[in-house]
């Protein structure tokens, strides 16, 4: 029988939402890590990192940038999700979202809590006394200063925010894989792992773009974050390979989805997801590491261009990954 496709109902807007959800969670994690590293750097140093004011400021900028990217991405993603609804006004009745079996209901509450966490950290880092934005907002600054907890407490709250961030990223996959018996491409274990690794990678890239573009790549932590990104990308490649291996061998609709993904959507998948999103970033990073080891330190405009391209490629690949996962998905036929 002819396969239906869930992409008939969940199209690019949902794909973009999943993409932005992944970026948002990953950016929070990156920002939180930068926030922690800045405090460690200022209060005694971290082995392996240079203790300089430049790096400390860069971590501060990265932390704030992470929260801004996180909040902006989930806000835009939430709007896309809302406008995708046929009856968006009915979403106002939030108290009805009580079906704990539904990942969409769970996701709504995760998003709400996550937005609160990200917005709070964004406000504490960006506004008030010594706020990163350097703005004078009067009463808003006063509220921020009054509510800002002690630094240790604020950093501890990153544990809650980080847990919500991971849940957010994984939820974007569980939303799909909850219906894996109907759509086998959306594997219940591999898809969450794939989106988690991809989300963290995208979050690192989106966040690290901020210091890359504003401060440059020399002694700003960009190199370190890029290395972390490389490790995550390697993990993502492993998960993706496992998913492809499973789909190719599972037969039936799973294999039909595999063929759709790797043949019909050859350009999108092999071109943009694999080459642009995974291999090119590793190639750029590997080249920079190799040059560094040979004594050629790439910084300045070339360094910005190199790292900026790498991070941009990761983001492009992440978007195409989610679109591919949606558009190559096939429903198991009724019979």
């Amino acid at each position: 029988m002819i396969h239906d496709s869930p992409a008939l109902f969940w199209d690019w807007m949902i794909g973009a939402y999943l993409f932005l959800g992944g970026i948002s969670g990953g950016a929070y994690l990156t920002g939180a890590a930068a926030d922690y590293l800045r405090q460690r750097s200022e209060s005694g140093g971290v082995p392996g990192f240079d203790r300089t004011d430049t790096k400390s400021r860069a971590y501060g900028l990265t932390a704030l940038g992470g929260m801004v990217v996180s909040f902006a991405a989930i806000s835009l993603g939430g709007l896309l999700l809302l406008f995708h609804l046929g009856e968006p006004l009915n979403a106002i009745e939030l108290w009805l979202f009580t079906n704990i079996e539904s990942w969409m209901a769970i996701g709504v509450w995760v998003i709400i809590l996550f937005v609160v966490a990200a917005l709070a950290q964004l406000a504490w880092l960006g506004f008030g006394r010594d706020g990163g934005f350097g703005l004078d907002l009067g009463p808003i600054d006063e509220i921020v200063d009054r509510t800002r907890p002690a630094t240790d407490t604020r950093l501890a709250l990153h544990i809650v925010g980080g847990a919500l961030a991971v849940t957010l990223i994984v939820y974007t996959a569980l939303l799909l894989s909850a219906v894996a018996p109907v759509v086998p491409l959306w594997h219940p274990i591999l898809l969450p792992l794939l989106f988690l690794t991809s989300g963290i990678s995208m979050g690192i890239s989106a966040t690290a773009l901020v210091p890359t573009l504003l401060l440059g790549v020399d002694d700003t932590g960009v190199h370190e974050f890029s290395l972390a990104d490389d490790a995550v990308i390697l993990g993502e490649i492993g998960v993706l390979a496992a998913l492809l291996w499973y789909l190719a061998g599972a037969g039936g609709t799973a294999t039909a989805s595999y063929e759709l993904l790797t043949q019909t959507f050859m350009l999108e998948f092999w071109g943009f997801v694999v080459v642009v999103g995974l291999l090119l970033p590793l190639l750029i990073s590997g080249t920079l590491i190799l040059l560094h080891r040979r004594g050629t330190h790439v910084d300045g405009l070339v360094g910005r261009a190199a790292y900026g391209s790498k991070f941009g490629f990761v983001l492009i690949g992440g978007l195409f990954l989610r679109l591919s996962i949606l558009y190559a998905a096939l429903n198991v036929p009724i019979f």
Binding site: P6, F9, W10, G86, N90, V182, V183
Partner: peptide
């Protein structure tokens, strides 16, 4: 009904 189409998927 939200019209989220999750039921259809």
């Amino acid at each position: 009904c939200l019209g989220c189409k999750y039921c259809e998927v």
